[in-house]
Simulated assay, not measured.
Amino acid sequence: MEGVRIFCPATIANISCGFDVLGVALDSVGDEMTLRKTDTPGIRITKIIGQEIPLETEQNVAGVAALALLGECDFSGGIEIEIEKKIKPGSGIGSSAASAAGAAFGLNLLLGNPFNRHQLVRFAMQGEKLASGVAHADNVAPALLGGFTLVRSYDPLDVIKLNTPEQLYATIIHPQIEVKTADSRKILKTGISLKDGIRQWGNVGGLIAGLYTEDYDLISRSLEDHIVEPIRSMLIPGYDDLKGAAVKAGALGVGISGSGPSVFALSKGSAKAREVADAFRSAYSVVGVPFEIHVSKINQEGIKVLEQW
């Protein structure tokens, strides 16, 4: 194989109660990347469409992820990468993760798949470290594996793909403001009370149980965040109105996607997800901030090959 073009999905991280450990991949929005072999040794990013981000390999999350993987392979040739960014940086739906995971996946494919998808997570995490200062996996894991994922442990890294109920859909509203992950981490508390911890652990367990039993009511009851949401929601204009409107429209639950400013809602069925989109639209039209809305089925596959040659 000399080249490949891939779809790299947007993702929702945290899923309310699972800060830094839970994530899910989306199907209707994502980046496209093209990787091809070249005779010039090393990794070069030759084109970026859609956003102004660095072309320099060491300053680009895709370049850093690719270099991390290449460092463990015996390959003397080179790779050129083109990125079509359809996920805006700072949107809260895994822009950096899509690029980092896509680079690791595409390079691995061109080298004959020396690593499986689970093993690629740790390379993609290096891109996240460049973007946010922390090598977290809650976005890159679902981007690579698809569906819902749980990072059980970071040391050693242990990522588990979870069950995804067939009728689960996501609705995402992206206010057109930027919230950088590194900045949103700075405002978080460094400690929590035992009481809050117990409530959060119960919700994480309940959510995972609900995913496996496909109990939508249990999923709904578990989509609560008593630790991060109260702080980060202050960075999102109109957050409380958005949440109230979506719940009233029948969403199972509402939360902040990643570090924000995007807000997600999970619903049972595509019709209800579209009703939630209408509720989001009505609630946010009076805020005075431009926005985009996506309705998506859960992406069970993760990164997809669009073309190869």
Rank of each mutant, 00 (worst) to 15 (best):
G3W: 07
G3V: 00
V4L: 12
C8T: 07
P9F: 07
I12R: 01
N14L: 09
N14C: 06
D20L: 02
D27Q: 14
D27F: 04
D31G: 00
K37Q: 08
T38P: 04
P41M: 15
G42A: 08
K47H: 14
Q51G: 01
V61C: 13
L67Q: 08
C73R: 14
G78W: 06
E82P: 05
S91K: 00
I93S: 05
I93V: 13
G94Q: 00
G106K: 04
L107H: 09
R117L: 15
M125K: 08
E128I: 04
A137N: 05
G146I: 02
T149F: 03
V151I: 12
Y154K: 07
K161G: 09
L162Q: 05
A170I: 07
E178R: 14
A182D: 09
D183S: 10
S184R: 09
I187P: 02
K189N: 09
I192F: 09
I192E: 06
R199Y: 12
G206D: 05
I208N: 06
A209F: 12
L211Y: 01
Y212G: 05
R221P: 01
I227G: 13
K243P: 02
A249F: 01
G253M: 10
S257G: 08
A271T: 13
A273H: 11
V276M: 10
F280N: 02
A283N: 08
G288K: 04
F291K: 06
I293D: 03
I293E: 06
N299P: 11
